[in-house]
Design a protein around this nucleic acid. Structure first.
Length: 450
RNA sequence: CGGGACGUGGCGCAGCCCGGUAGCGCACCUGAAUGGGGUUCAGGGGGUCGCGGGUUCAAAUCCCGCCGUCCCGACCA
């Protein structure tokens, strides 16, 4: 919920409006865009009937009499149905741009699912926009990629490599696809969010046209962009450890948990009153007092650690007498697991400690990623060694031939995660294609992916 | 669809090889003592052993068939 709210805020700040479009898409809509057909035909959930009928043995079967003339597809993504609507709404360049987002569940019947990372049904947001020019659409696609990156790094403490997808990896029907790629703790890549410049591909199929300023009739330029609950999986696999979840503080539902320590009723009263004081003093910070009776403090410690709460404050009668509290951070750094500190100091520094913890988690994840990123690899044998061994990201030259890309996939299962944006490119740029040794025309990041 | 494994109280598993009528941990209920890192002790409730058939005096256990789940692969924005 916190993640969604934060993203919605940024969508609004960048001029978008939330909307909601239909769940069912007429099959003919999907047929209109050729690449789209190929991309989604193999993984569709299809509605063919509208009624059930009881058989003699008490089972239910689809009533043959209710068979639909045209099947409905449970949306795998909403480009087609949204652009069908956009076409009705746009007449003039004055109606542009259209800037919408929707949160919706979509269905992709993959042969094999993976918890959080590739589920049959998943919740995502999909932004859809229509613009008058290519450049405006391109700027929008890049802007939203930036919003994603800023969110992943700034809120999830999850560093990403951003760049463009190769032709074979781009979205079905897109001109260009941009991506945020994170590295999990097993050194595999996770595509965490994508943004597409769809060009005029969909506009042409759905007659999304407008009268331009100069009086001509032109097709609109579309973008779409999305992140899903896959990010939750990414978060778990980026920060988690053997004790459980590790929540980055800016999206942690509970940032500070307070565990009161007491034995007798009078102590309980005293300590809970102090806990309430602490909560009040930490106004603006998401706190929770674990006042459950019949659970020992130790049991609570383990539970909140497993749930990844960034900080725990313990307070008991002895602490109150001394004006101190016990402070413990989910992932300690240098310090002891528990620190005995003056109450006032802890309360005064909590906001800063949360910020520092975010930075710590981000830096830690970035250091791990960088330690497992390989540059200057110019031998294909060496590349294979890396992929067959520890894995990780390999930055290397590419001749941009689909053959070389395919060979790598066959040999190692690694794929091109992206052609990195300038910020991530190697200096000097790799000269030769990693695979065929011809002159490289671009740099690519290879990795095994989820 | 190909390869592999597994189905036994709510959850996780042992028992199966070598048949004798079901057990452990967690969870749950009751009581008492405990309470600053997963409390302890005592008592208690809960299971068509995935389904069907066969062998046998006797099947969770052996045999045959089926169903289901998971993992690996093919697939995958």
């Amino acid at each position: 919920e916190l993640m969604r709210d934060r993203l919605d805020l940024r969508f609004r700040e960048t001029g978008h409006q939330n909307a909601y479009f239909p769940l069912f898409i007429p099959q003919s809509f999907l047929e209109r865009e050729a690449a789209h057909v190929e991309g989604f035909a193999k993984e569709a959930a299809i509605v063919t009937h509208t009624r059930l009928k009881a058989t003699d043995d008490g089972k239910l079967i689809p009533d043959p009499a209710s068979k639909l003339e045209e099947p409905l597809i449970v949306r795998p993504t909403s480009e087609t149905i949204i652009y069908e609507m956009f076409a009705k709404w746009v007449q003039s360049y004055r109606d542009l741009p259209l800037l919408y987002n929707q949160w919706a569940n979509v269905v992709r019947w993959e042969m094999r699912t993976r918890l959080f990372l590739r589920t049959t049904e998943f919740l995502w947001q999909e932004g859809h926009t229509a613009h008058a020019t290519h450049d405006e659409a391109e700027a929008e696609a890049l802007q939203m990629l930036g919003v994603y990156r800023e969110f992943m790094e700034g809120y999830l403490a999850m560093p990403v490599v951003v760049g463009q997808k190769s032709d074979s990896e781009k979205f079905a029907g897109a001109l260009r696809t941009y991506t945020c790629e994170a590295m999990m703790q097993d050194n595999r890549a996770l595509q965490n969010g994508t943004s597409h410049n769809l060009g005029q591909n969909f506009a042409k199929q759905f007659e999304l046209k407008f009268a331009s300023e100069s009086g001509g009739e032109e097709y609109a330029w579309n973008t779409s962009w999305g992140v899903s609950t896959r990010m939750v999986g990414g978060l778990v696999m980026t920060h988690g450890d053997d004790k459980g979840l590790v929540m980055p503080p800016r999206v942690a539902p509970i940032q500070v948990v307070i565990v009161p320590i007491y034995r007798k009723d009078d102590e309980r009263e005293l300590v809970l009153a102090k806990a309430a004081e602490i909560v009040a003093a930490l106004g603006g910070i998401r706190t929770h007092v674990d006042d459950r009776d019949k659970l020992t403090p130790g049991a609570k410690f383990f539970e909140w650690e497993m749930k990844g709460v960034p900080f725990r404050i313990e307070v008991g009668p002895k602490d109150i007498a001394k004006g101190q509290v016990v402070l413990a951070r989910r992932i300690p750094e240098g310090e002891e697991r528990k620190q005995f500190l003056p109450e006032a100091d802890v309360l005064g520094s909590m906001a800063q400690r949360l910020e520092d913890y975010h930075t710590f988690l981000l830096d830690r994840a970035r250091a791990r990623r960088d330690a497992n990123s390989h540059r200057g690899i110019d031998s294909y044998d060496r590349f294979r060694e890396i992929m067959e061994g520890p894995g990780g990201f390999v930055y290397a030259g590419w001749c941009e031939s689909a053959e070389c890309e395919e060979k790598v996939k066959e040999d190692t299962k690694a794929t091109i995660r992206c052609l990195p944006s300038e910020e991530f490119r190697s200096d000097p740029a790799p000269a030769k294609c990693l695979v065929c040794g011809a002159d490289a025309t671009t740099e690519a990041v290879w990795a095994k992916a989820y």
